[in-house]
């Protein structure tokens, strides 16, 4: 298949950036989206052009490194799929595909489609952990955890930190990301001692990073490659209100 790509090119953080159009030909439907970009980049290198920079690593949908807004949708229109797992068979021959980086002030563009997501790390630093130094843990069976809680915690814990939720949110909110961690740890007995302080600190850090507010549009969950449930945000709100009332 032959495609027209409109890709955001920006040489660095100080560059204003612009959309540039490329043609790619003989794309196999079995290629992944990133392999299609690899093909373009191999050509650009040989033509003496600067290849398109994009983040990627595991290419099996779990590391959370890749991510681009494809035709206006974070990770493309295929549900529950990271960009690396999106395959070209979902596009039509002759299609025009717009490719842009995540857009959010707390995700400044480094180059082309590569953005800086260190704000996510700082949200975790604020409290997304259980304070348990190595070697101090009691036996794993000391505290039974109801299966239901463990499963719900797991659902939230599968967040890969890719940032699609922010990219898709009309408000540029990081609520789903933050809520996923608050929910994961808040549902387990091991997370209880720090539950209130964690919720408060993480929410405050999220706001301090400059993310927008949540208006419960649900766009985040819809594009989330791991389908992090929307009710995690309710849980975050409840925990935050509880901590604020103390």
């Amino acid at each position: 298949m032959n495609l027209t790509l409109k890709i955001w090119r920006q040489s660095g953080s100080s560059d204003k950036g612009r959309m540039v159009t490329y043609r790619v030909e003989d794309v196999s439907p079995d290629m992944s989206f990133l392999e299609m970009l690899d093909v373009l980049n191999e050509r650009l290198i040989l033509e003496g052009d600067d290849p398109v920079a994009f983040d990627h690593d595991c290419r099996e949908g779990i590391c959370g490194m890749c991510g681009m807004v494809i035709n206006g949708v974070a990770h493309g229109e295929q549900r529950a799929t990271t960009t690396c797992q999106l395959h070209m068979r979902h596009f039509e021959d002759g299609a025009v595909i717009t490719i842009e980086p995540w857009r959010a002030a707390p995700f400044p563009v480094i180059k082309d489609l590569v953005v800086d997501r260190s704000s996510f790390d700082r949200i975790i630093q604020a409290g997304g952990f259980v304070s348990v130094p190595a070697g101090s843990a009691p036996d794993a069976h000391a505290v039974p955890v109801p299966k239901e809680d463990a499963d719900a915690a797991f659902d939230a814990a599968t967040c890969i930190g890719c940032g699609a939720c922010v990219a898709a949110c009309p408000n540029g909110s990081a609520s789903l990301f933050t809520a996923a961690k608050i929910t994961h740890l808040g549902l387990l007995p091991q997370g209880q001692p720090e539950r209130d302080s964690r919720a408060r600190a993480m929410v405050e850090q999220m706001d301090a990073e400059g993310f927008g507010g949540c208006t419960n549009t649900g766009e985040c969950t819809a594009v989330c490659p791991k389908g992090i449930p929307f009710d995690t945000i309710a849980r975050m709100n409840a925990d935050y209100l509880r901590s604020a009332s103390k």
């Binding site: 206006g72 717009t98 507010g213």
Partner: peptide, 21 residues
């Protein structure tokens, strides 16, 4: 909220954002 949202996304998407929700 709207102002915070605008501040959180100073550069808009070129493609029309398509609602998935």
């Amino acid at each position: 909220l709207a102002r915070r949202a605008a501040k959180a996304r100073p550069v808009k998407y070129a493609a029309k954002r398509r609602s998935q929700a």
